[in-house]
């Protein structure tokens, strides 16, 4: 099985005034299709940086990142953006919905960016996903009218509407109470099983970590252990 994500001798260095920060100092790892993996570590360990690289929001200083075999280090911003649009989905800690749009419109957003679906097709996809996250009734509402859990479900629907191979979630349960959080994780696990979508999380939440299939621990920009649970 090909790794859906391969990290190969990746270094990420940020200039900070006259000095440099080595956020990642030589990471090697693979993530297989269908994994439900957590990246964990203390703050400053580089997990955000790693997630950004995998999320194609940034490129490594040296080394290579392969998304479905495609190296991204030399890609242009335009190509990276396209890659994100087609192959990735994002779930944020603060939900990051577009406030002026309705639930339906938020979920529809990526499809419009893709620009190749008719209205009917978009309608069908969005409706299907809203059903999956159980928000059909709220599709006409704005995010300000929803609870935290509902908002995160919208976010999940939005992340999945393009049928991405990888979904990246950055502390998805941080702003939810434990009950809601657990439900969100359950939802994501279901989707992981049914859609075979690879889920990669960054989290502090032990609940999430318990559910994870694999935990990759980072410390000081290096992988500490990669153990399956």
């Amino acid at each position: 099985m090909t790794a859906v994500v391969r990290i190969s001798s990746v270094e990420k260095i940020y200039p900070l005034g006259k000095t440099q920060v080595h956020a990642l100092s030589g990471i090697d790892m693979d993530i297989q299709e269908g994994e439900f993996t957590t990246i964990a570590g203390p703050s400053g360990c580089g997990k955000s940086t790693l997630l950004n690289l995998i999320g194609c929001m940034d490129v490594p200083t040296s080394g290579e990142v392969y998304i479905e075999g495609l190296p991204i280090a030399k890609l242009s911003d335009r190509e990276l953006t396209k890659l994100r649009l087609e192959k990735l989905g994002f779930i944020f800690q603060s939900f990051n919905l577009i406030p002026v749009l309705t639930v339906f419109q938020n979920v529809e957003f990526p499809l419009l960016l893709q620009g190749r679906f008719s209205r009917a097709e978009r309608q069908q996809k969005v409706t299907a996903l809203l059903a999956e996250v159980d928000l059909t009734a709220q599709q006409g509402q704005r995010s300000s009218e929803l609870s935290g859990g509902q908002r995160q479900r919208v976010a999940i629907a939005r992340a999945l509407v393009t049928g991405p191979r990888i979904v990246l979630a950055d502390e998805p349960t941080a702003n939810l109470d434990s009950a809601t959080g657990e439900r969100i994780i359950e939802l994501m696990k279901t989707i992981n099983r049914t859609h075979k979508t690879t889920f990669i999380f960054s989290t502090h939440d032990p609940q999430v970590m318990r559910q994870a299939g694999r935990i990759i621990r980072l410390k000081d920009g290096k992988v500490v252990t990669g153990q399956d649970s």
Partner: peptide
């Protein structure tokens, strides 16, 4: 910033 970053993250080009 956050809103724009989000849009960019989920695949909106700069031109958008």
């Amino acid at each position: 910033t956050r809103e724009i970053g989000t849009m960019r993250a989920i695949g909106a080009q700069r031109s958008f």
